[in-house]
Design a protein around this nucleic acid. Structure first.
Length: 879
RNA sequence: GCCCGGGUGGCGGAACGGUAGACGCGGCGGACUCAAAAUCCGCUUCUCGCAAGGGAGUGUGGGUUCGAUUCCCACCCCGGGUACCA
């Protein structure tokens, strides 16, 4: 009989079974059963736009493999799915076409769902969420109110990033090189009333708790850098003319004695006031206006020539009473530290550059390492930019190191108490001294900013706030949620949210006083939606609460989270923040949401990122139609290590498809061959003419060994290693071995079509071994190719593969009584000998030295040493 | 500049400090076929050699070791993140 692998027939058939039986549904009641090990496997929430791309395919192929593997290892697996369905693409489409974003979004969701089903991903669809639906965003609003109630929401006027193309503000994180992340437009700075979440309150915990989670090290590093903790000191500088104190933050209080001027950011609120009445007033005003108008990217360029203007005022250095001229300069940033710095040109490159440009004094307070007599001059002669600058600035004495000097060394020119002390030691004592003198104190500063969450856009979650003339900002009471997003005519933002045009919706009454009030018209950043969806999955049907902590705390943390590195900072940081905040509030007990994180690499085409404009996209739908979902899934996993980028190849998919076809055919054939079977203990039962089970022999034994080797290999590769590519390769090897044995048996006359009756005893055991090996291969492949596995396994055994436990390798088949001994001379392989495993070290050495090939390389030389690695090799060292 | 990744056949990639190149793609040769496709079998790092066999080889240069793709030092190239953060 002709056997043909027909994924187009097989795959929908099994998908229907799983759907009809709700195979992947997991009930929360399962949590109460004895011995249940709840495991949460989650891929990052997709944004539904058009159709899924190969990145999604890879993401879900990985996640589904993990989910299947863990189920068959006996865990109770939660594997849900949903959609990050608020956001700009649907809204921009609405602006262009007039189609309601909801329609486009729901259409995309339907397309995604259809394809995820076509892929056979084992999802519990009963828990599906979509962030744009009121039954979901009702609870997004509830969370906002909880945070508000606990002081973690703030409305304040702030200099914000304004994207002139999208006509909305952006979070710092969404500004790349001074341009909007999506629009690419140069971002302007505007002063606006905005909503913030106080994530900075959690900076230290967000940093510390990275040590408690299993994430790729580079992702942790990115988060650490983003949080940007700096240890240093706050120091107060006094201005006599206005009798004002100005604090600065510095990580180098050891260089305080080297401060020669003082600089404020152009945005600093006191800059104009300070210059007022001085002859510098006009110049300062012009400078500030110019720098505020300029775009951010230009200002950010580190190699830019430094500019600034004297404020006409001075501050006093608290440690030595020096009068320092005050400047405004755009190299000082308002949103880091206090927006003002003490400038130490002797030991800071930026301050040095500024000092050079404006001819300000440079003072050394830390001695360099160089031998005063010689070395430093040679270094200077080598001609780095530093030494050139120093020469141009006229370094005070030739035996000094080039300035600025940013290294360590003993303090000089500072204070009798400190001179001579190493600067690293002085760091702490100067901070202490400042504190006792009341001139400052040790301080920690973070780079992390509060999270700006308001957006002047339509397609987002309405902020549940009402503005009342009498009561001010009033939160919408919980029992009035959700605040439903109204329909509008025009989606285009005109400097304010399109919601402002929905006048009937905006006009409301104050929940507190009942008087006329207006609804908040900004919507929430969509990162808010995706910061808690993994909590909702655990209790998705709950319409009385966002979740039941008794349930959610059991499922969380997510045991395995899988997604792209592009979310290494924003999404992952925000989600961590939400869990900590909600746990502090008392509605949750989850310190860290994602215990294990796996970040997948990108799939490229022809070495480049896929994009429509380049025309190098690969549509998963087309691949699935041509080769089937199993081939597509197995291929993306076989492509290479899943955490690395990999290039798509059509020939590669064909190769995997070829492999699956072969395996399926062997299974179909072996299922019909009948006859003996391999029993649980590895013996062969029911061979014609045999009254008792027999041990497999010869080629059959070798095939069974290969099968057990594959079990061992695949299990190790999947158990926390994510080595899908080598796991698939192992099953391919097993399939090659099956093929060889099958060809031999058929050659021998063991016609599979003849059935058990016609088969000889040898053929019967041969088919038994093939059937066992095939069933094993199929079983091991199930996490990658679930349809093929279900179909082939049912043919072979009548059983449902997804209900079978993961196979376990039998030790007796892994062990051998002989092995190939590699014999080296001087570390070079000269011979390979088949030797008994039981051979002693001495015997191995003897056998190795007895080899003719070895002797040829040893003769005439003296054997100095013989290294014996039992079970592996012998290395003969000669002289 | 700083912080991560990564450099291995024609290509994607394998290798607890112990046989470099598993597995796949591509290529070459063969079987089956009237023919082709599909399928099956064999070969396929480079190089010298008819062969047996030898030599070289994991970005470059050093080092540790009986033995290094693997560990250490210095450097080169590619990709990503970040950048006037005081």
């Amino acid at each position: 009989m002709e056997h043909r692998y027909e994924p187009r027939e097989i795959e929908p058939r099994w998908q229907r079974v799983w759907e009809d039986e709700q195979t992947w549904h997991v009930d929360n009641a399962a949590l109460d059963e004895a011995g249940v090990d709840p495991v949460y496997v989650l891929e990052m929430l997709p944004y539904p736009s058009g159709e899924p791309h190969v990145g999604h395919l890879k993401n879900y192929a990985i996640g589904d493999a993990v989910a299947h593997f863990r189920r068959r290892r006996g865990d109770t697996v939660l594997h849900p799915m949903g959609f990050d369905s608020f956001g700009l693409p649907a809204e921009n489409n609405a602006i262009k076409t007039g189609q309601h974003p909801r329609e486009a979004t729901e259409a995309s969701i339907a397309s995604f769902q259809r394809q995820f089903r076509d892929w056979g991903v084992s999802i519990d669809w009963s828990r599906e969420i979509a962030s744009h639906r009121p039954e979901y965003y009702r609870w997004t609003q509830w969370i906002f109110l909880k945070l508000f109630e606990h002081g973690l929401v703030e409305r304040r006027s702030a200099a914000v990033n304004w994207d002139p193309v999208e006509e909305t503000v952006l979070a710092n994180e969404q500004v790349i090189d001074g341009r909007g992340e999506r629009s690419g437009a140069l971002v302007e700075i505007r002063q606006l009333e905005q909503w913030f979440l106080r994530i900075t309150d959690y900076a230290q915990r967000l940093l510390d708790d990275l040590d408690t989670i299993e994430w790729p090290e580079h992702v942790k590093t990115m988060q650490r850098n983003w949080i940007g903790r700096s240890q240093g000191a706050q120091v107060v500088f006094h201005n006599d003319e206005l009798d004002a104190d100005y604090e600065v933050f510095t990580t180098r209080p050891d260089t305080l004695f080297g401060a020669t001027f003082f600089v404020m950011a152009p945005e600093h609120p006191d800059v104009l006031r300070l210059a007022e009445g001085t002859e510098q007033e006009q110049a300062v005003r012009e400078y500030v206006n110019r720098s505020l108008a300029g775009d951010r990217s230009e200002r950010g360029a580190a190699d830019k020539q430094k500019t600034g203007v004297f404020l006409g005022r001075h501050v006093v250095n608290p440690v030595n009473g020096d009068r320092l001229p005050m400047y405004v300069a755009d190299y000082v940033l308002m949103d880091y530290g206090t927006g003002a710095i003490m400038a130490v040109p002797g030991h800071d490159q930026r301050d040095f550059d500024f000092a050079q440009a404006y001819d300000l004094p440079v003072k050394r307070v830390i001695a360099g390492p160089a031998d005063p007599a010689g070395e430093s001059l040679e270094e200077a002669a080598d001609g780095g930019p530093l030494s050139d600058d120093a020469a141009a600035g006229g370094s005070p004495s030739p035996d000094d190191d080039a300035l600025p000097y940013v290294g360590d060394g003993p303090l000089v020119n500072s204070h009798p108490d400190f001179d001579g002390t190493h600067n690293r030691e002085a760091l702490a004592s100067i901070s202490d001294w400042l504190a006792t003198e009341g001139k400052g104190q040790a301080s920690i500063n973070f780079r992390l900013r509060d999270w700006l969450v308001s957006r002047q856009r339509y397609w987002g979650c309405p902020i549940p706030i009402v503005h009342c003339d009498r009561c001010g900002v009033v939160p919408v009471p919980e029992d009035q949620l959700p605040v439903v997003l109204p329909d509008v005519e025009d989606y285009k933002p005109k400097g304010k949210s399109p919601l402002a045009a929905a006048e009937e919706w905006v006009a409301t009454s104050c929940p507190t006083c009942g008087g006329p009030a207006r609804r908040e018209t900004d919507t929430l950043d969509t990162f808010v939606d995706s910061s808690w969806y993994f909590l909702r999955y655990t209790d998705a049907g709950n319409d009385g609460a966002a979740w039941d902590p008794a349930v959610t705390n059991r499922w969380l943390p997510v045991d395995q989270y899988i997604g792209g590195v592009e979310h290494a900072i924003l999404h992952l940081l925000y989600a961590r923040f939400f869990c900590k905040a909600l746990s502090d509030i008392g509605v949750l007990d989850v310190n860290e949401p994602f215990q294990n994180l796996f970040t997948q690499g990108m799939i490229t085409k022809d070495g480049a990122k896929m994009s429509k404009s380049k025309g190098n996209t690969v549509a998963p739908r087309e691949i699935v139609e041509r080769f089937g979902a199993d081939s597509a899934r197995t291929y993306v996993l076989f492509l290479g290590p899943p955490d690395q980028d990999a290039d798509w190849s059509d020939e590669g998919v064909e190769g995997v498809n070829r492999f699956l076809s072969r395996l399926w055919r062997f299974a179909a054939e072996a299922a019909e061959a009948g006859g003996a079977v391999v029993a649980q203990d590895g013996t062969v039962s029911g061979a014609p003419g045999a009254t008792a089970p027999v041990d497999p022999q010869g080629d059959d034994l070798e095939l069974l060994r290969k099968a057990h080797w594959a079990i061992d290999k695949v299990t190790q590769d999947l158990d926390g290693r994510f080595a899908f590519n080598t796991a698939v390769a192992a099953v391919m090897e097993l399939t090659n071995a099956i093929s060889a044995r099958r060809n031999a048996v058929v050659q021998d006359g063991g016609n599979p079509d003849a059935g058990a009756a016609a088969a000889t005893a040898g053929d019967a055991t041969g088919w038994a071994a093939i059937r066992f090996a095939t069933a094993t291969a199929v079983s091991l492949l199930q996490p990658f190719a679930p349809h093929l596995a279900a179909d082939a396994y049912q043919r072979l055994t009548g059983l449902r593969i997804w209900e079978q436990p993961w196979p376990v390798a039998e030790q007796r088949f892994l062990e051998r009584d002989e092995f190939e001994l590699v014999v080296q001379v001087q570390g070079k392989v000269r011979d390979r000998l088949t030797v008994p495993v039981s051979a002693s070290r001495e015997q191995l050495e003897e056998l190795a030295l007895a080899s003719d090939k070895v002797r040829a390389h040893v003769d005439g030389k003296t054997v100095v040493k013989v290294i014996v690695v039992p079970g592996k090799l012998v290395n003969v060292v000669v002289r």
